[in-house]
């Protein structure tokens, strides 16, 4: 059975991923995998290539080399190389952005409903006639989006214009929007950036809840070491585009290479 096989496989399996920008090798043959219901962190000093790695996986960049495989939304294995970002999202990988990229002038609920877009079917004709099927679909999307907002704790803002939200709420809305696409893997790019300690604690709980209740695996980039060590089961460390270490939080904390990379950064700065 398909299900049996896929439960043995990694939900995301990246091999030898390389991304060149002209002469600059931003990602240098990185291997990485995420298992079902796992929380994995990707850390590294500024400019290490973490965001570029995300962009390659999610189809925003087309990687120069390497293989990206994932268990898709439907449960089948698929190769993601060269797919457009919306196709990647359709296949069950959703992401947030390091520099918040909300739809500023749309309401919070509409932001989340955009995430539902790829799970909806209504065409132009349906929109014009607004037949029963279209109405039912709209209703379902709105309700499901609202439920997601409730889970994330943003329901009270649902009619607010996104740009009016406080910063922390905007970060959370990015997560809500990504969850609306019904992903099997959530890629979070610095979800705690700019949050205060209180908000960061809440976020830690939230991410754990998403993993536990929604059956979603999580790969996150984060500079907040406390959050990373608390949350993740495994950690990958990148520096200058290369993977320099991987392992459990304890391994990583005591890894001399990692310490050097971070200290080196401090000296440079």
């Amino acid at each position: 059975m398909e299900g049996l096989v896929s439960s043995m496989e990694h939900i995301l399996d990246v091999k030898d991923l390389t991304m060149d920008f002209g002469g600059l090798r931003a990602v240098d043959s990185v291997d990485l995998y995420v298992d079902k219901k796992e929380i994995v962190a990707l850390i590294g000093p500024n400019g290490a290539g973490k965001t570029t790695f995300f962009n390659c996986i999610t189809g925003i960049y087309n990687p120069s080399k390497g293989d990206i495989k994932a268990i898709t939304h439907s449960g089948a294995a698929a190769r993601l190389n060269g797919l457009k970002p919306n196709r990647v999202t359709e296949r069950g990988l959703a992401r947030t952005f390091q520099n918040i990229r909300l739809f500023q002038n749309m309401t919070v609920l509409e932001n989340v409903m955009i995430g539902k877009h790829c799970r909806m079917k209504a065409k132009v004709l349906g929109a014009l006639l607004r037949d029963r099927r279209t109405r039912a679909e709209e209703l379902k999307a709105a309700n499901e989006s609202y439920e997601i907002l409730e889970k994330i704790g943003l329901a009270k803002f649902s009619d607010e214009i996104a740009s009016n939200l406080p910063y922390g709420a905007q970060r959370k809305l990015e997560i809500a929007r990504a969850m609306a696409t019904e992903p099997s893997l959530l890629l979070l790019d610095e979800p705690a950036a700019g949050m205060n300690p209180q908000e960061t604690r809440e976020l830690t709980d939230l991410i754990r809840q998403i993993r536990d209740n929604e059956d979603i695996s999580i790969l996150l980039i984060e500079h907040d070491m406390k959050l990373v060590m608390n949350l993740s089961e495994r950690i990958y460390v990148m520096d200058h585009g290369q993977k320099i270490a991987e392992g459990t939080p304890v391994d990583i904390r005591n890894n001399p290479e990692v310490i050097k990379a971070y200290l080196g950064e401090d000296i440079d700065a």
Partner: peptide, 10 residues
């Protein structure tokens, strides 16, 4: 509003 985010949201 945002072409890249829009694509990334499917």
């Amino acid at each position: 509003e945002d072409e890249i985010a829009c694509q990334a949201m499917g």
